[in-house]
Design a protein around this nucleic acid. Structure first.
Lengths: 248, 248
DNA sequence: GTCTATACCCCGATAGAC
DNA sequence: GTCTATCGGGGTATAGAC
């Protein structure tokens, strides 16, 4: 009897996964706005009405795809972090962990552009993501916070400076998001988080066409600057900033 | 006779504008992927086949909307720049111009979220923007370059530092985009450009929901940091960066 | 330049048989 | 759990009359 239930449960899981896999395939061709249960059913060789046993509506299928995508990119970020933590000694500094997480997110996005568009692109008109997507959506940001937390617990972190109005918002954010970090760091983390997805989004969505050629080098340099802005890079002995003036 | 032609031309322009206006309205409700000539015709009270006298296909209408949107946000950026240049003496420094342009882009985006999604969000599946959209698309970036150019011609600009691999790409970019600026500045401008739209996109697309509350203060602080990264902010006499360590 | 009519497609969702 | 059939919509694009 438990065997029978197990078999049925497995069949149900397999069908559910097959539906999602075909839907993901169609995301690439038609986009989320046109995701269609009928088209999925046609490709799977079943009646469209059969799919309603697995997903009560088109929007529920969309929600499942969104949660899966957030979890996939979040898992990439977490795996990259773990690998960096366990890696060579020189790879363990906060900046190296930061870079590893950012690169993992970018690589996931480039490998899954349509799922990236689903979660970080334009909202799907007429669809509103339920609150149940929030935990999955928070995983990447959580990993960025973790890197900053490591650094703050380590030998020292350079706190970014803030204007006065921003300071109020920074304290509010810190209280809600990471009370164990200085408000200025939390604030800088949130800006860096948004900016990271600006870099990735422009690449995935084609805005760098004929602008940026060596996109990997570009990205790595940019996220190093972000790490610096967050305060993860300790000042090294370095030459003074060069200054240019037309009156040299 | 020229009067007759003028009247006809005006009628044609008015109908073209009416079609685009209704299409923009529908962009908000259904999104670009579902933009439909029939629905536009229905709302305008004409036969759908009549619209083919104005736009040979749905994609041509989409292209017109995209060009209009790029021009609108570009014009906002340019107007904000001009106003900053003509403004109070303290508003004329490079950082103030930079902030003015960024704020104008953000305000346009918040006022026109669906047109923003059309040009900076997920690509429309099955649609490929023709090269004719490029000049309009370049206007915002061009205005950011202009701010940097002003600064470079002025009393001095702090050149960002670059890694070696990034240096090669920076020189290539500078040659193509702004040969009159130092490669490191051009490189930083491109990263700041992408990051600016990361900040705006996250706000417009709802990623800041329950994360950022005072979004204006957040944005202004973030774009000031971007101005600094580009080298537009000259170092002022300021206290050394505070350092934190748990072993204080 | 606008119309009607048409060819040929698409969709979400449900009812009820098996 | 899957099917057929159905309701009630939706779409692009063209032909040919006026």
């Amino acid at each position: 009897m438990s065997t029978t239930r197990g078999v049925r449960a497995r069949a149900r899981t397999e069908m559910t996964e097959a539906i999602k896999a075909e839907a993901r395939r169609q995301l690439a061709e038609e986009g989320a706005a046109k995701l269609s249960l009928r088209a999925v059913a046609r490709e799977l060789g079943v009646a469209s009405s059969a799919l309603y046993r697995y997903f009560p509506s088109r929007d529920e299928l969309l929600t499942a795809l969104i949660v899966d995508a957030y979890n996939a990119v979040g898992a990439s970020a977490e795996a990259a972090y773990e690998k960096a933590v366990l890696g060579d000694p020189e790879g363990r500094c906060p900046a190296a962990r930061w870079e590893a997480v950012c690169v993992a997110v970018r690589e996931w996005a480039l490998a899954h552009p349509h799922e990236y568009a689903l979660i970080y692109g334009s909202p799907v008109p007429g669809y509103s993501a339920p609150e149940s997507t929030v935990p999955a959506a928070a995983r990447v940001a959580g990993q960025l916070v973790q890197v900053a937390r490591d650094a703050y617990r380590g030998p020292g972190i350079a706190e970014p400076r803030l204007g006065d109005e921003a300071g109020v918002e920074a304290r509010r954010m810190a209280e809600e998001l990471a009370p164990d970090l200085p408000p200025a760091v939390v604030f800088a983390l949130v800006t860096a988080w948004a900016q990271l997805f600006g870099l990735i989004g422009f690449e995935v969505f084609g805005q760098f066409h004929r602008v940026v050629e060596d996109r990997s080098a570009f990205f790595v340099q940019a996220v190093r600057q972000l790490a610096h802005d967050v305060g993860l890079v300790r000042a090294k002995p370095e030459p003074a900033r060069p200054r240019r003036s037309p009156r040299d």
